[in-house]
């Protein structure tokens, strides 16, 4: 490190000092808000700790308990995975379809863009409260509309089988957020490619599959990773609407973590849970990145 420093000219050293000075807030922040908490969580996960007494080292016990005799771990992992499997692909596909619509060149499209993006900017709490009332089994809009067709709507959030799909539907309602990012990707595709394809007599269908989709794969890839991380972190809806119920049907992983840590003060075990979720999210991300070489198209 010192030898690199000695090789610098005085001007370069001055520059380097200014650079480090400019970065110093981030470096302090990195240590306090990132490095320390991450390392501490790893350490705590090998301890039994309820805050009342100092932590006691118990080795891998937390992990053994997690993987062998914790039904809540299993059910929360199942609920979260199910939620990801339902909401993620639906959101990606519907988001793309919505973006294709919003990309049509007709007057007034900006107003529609504004409207579809609204659900994505309002808070999870407000959305949750709105949807409790919207999906109310007796007086909610959806069941009222269904009743016009003589259909008895389900109990939605209050039904064992419908609770999780209801939360997924609510999250799909925010599809405008994905659509806006796709839209930016679509508008980045050079128009001359379409013109050339049109001259060659390519149909709209083949233009979509041969030009739009391949050139949109970097955006799709980015969106997939963002939505993937986001979906695993689902929390607010469980907290506000269902409290994890009915019968743990929506007991999502982060909600379990929250209850272990901040309601039951099992800091050691909760740290192990937090770390497990991190590993799941990172492995899913790495998996997507690995496969991306096969399907993401880069011009250069």
């Amino acid at each position: 490190m010192l030898s690199t420093w000695r090789k610098l000219t005085p001007q370069e050293r001055r520059d380097a000092k200014t650079g480090y000075l400019a970065l110093s807030p981030w470096m302090v922040g990195f240590v306090v808000f990132y490095a320390f908490p991450i390392i501490a969580t790893i350490y705590f996960s090998f301890n039994e700790w309820t805050l009342a007494e100092p932590p006691t080292w118990i080795g891998l016990d937390n992990y053994v308990r997690m993987f062998t005799r914790d039904p809540l771990f299993v059910s929360s992992l199942r609920a979260t995975t199910l939620f990801v499997i339902i909401s993620l692909p639906t959101k990606l596909v519907l988001g793309l379809m919505l973006a294709l619509l919003l990309n049509l060149k007709i007057p007034g499209m900006n107003a529609f863009r504004t409207i579809f993006f609204i659900p994505a900017v309002i808070s999870g709490v407000a959305v949750s409260l709105m949807w409790i009332w919207f999906l109310n089994p007796d007086t909610g809009v959806v069941n009222t509309l269904l009743s016009y067709f003589g259909i008895r709507g389900p109990l939605w959030f209050w039904d064992l089988h419908w609770a999780l799909p209801s939360v997924a539907i609510m999250s799909i309602w925010k599809v405008g957020g994905a659509a806006i990012i796709y839209l930016a990707g679509l508008q980045n595709i050079p128009a001359h490619l379409y013109e050339a394809a049109e001259i060659d007599g390519a149909s709209k269908w083949s233009r979509f599959w041969r030009i739009t989709l391949p050139l949109l794969t970097p955006t799709l890839f980015f969106q997939l990773i963002i939505e993937l991380i986001d979906a695993f972190k689902i929390f607010t809806e469980a907290y506000v609407i269902t409290h994890g119920g009915p019968l743990k049907a929506t007991y999502f992983f982060l909600y379990y973590f929250y209850e272990e840590a901040f309601r039951n003060a099992n800091m050691g075990y909760a740290s192990a849970l937090a770390l497990f979720l991190l590993v799941v999210i990172l492995s899913a991300t790495v998996f997507v990145v690995r496969t991306s070489k096969g399907w993401v198209y880069y011009e250069n």
Binding site: F33, Y34, F36, P37, I38, A40, T41, F44, I229, F232, K233, L254, F257, A261, M267, A270, S271, A274, L275, L277, L278, I281, L282, T285
Partner: peptide, 11 residues
């Protein structure tokens, strides 16, 4: 890329 929840307990 680090999800925020991992930092909550130590903080």
């Amino acid at each position: 890329m680090v999800p925020g929840h991992i930092k909550l307990i130590p903080l």
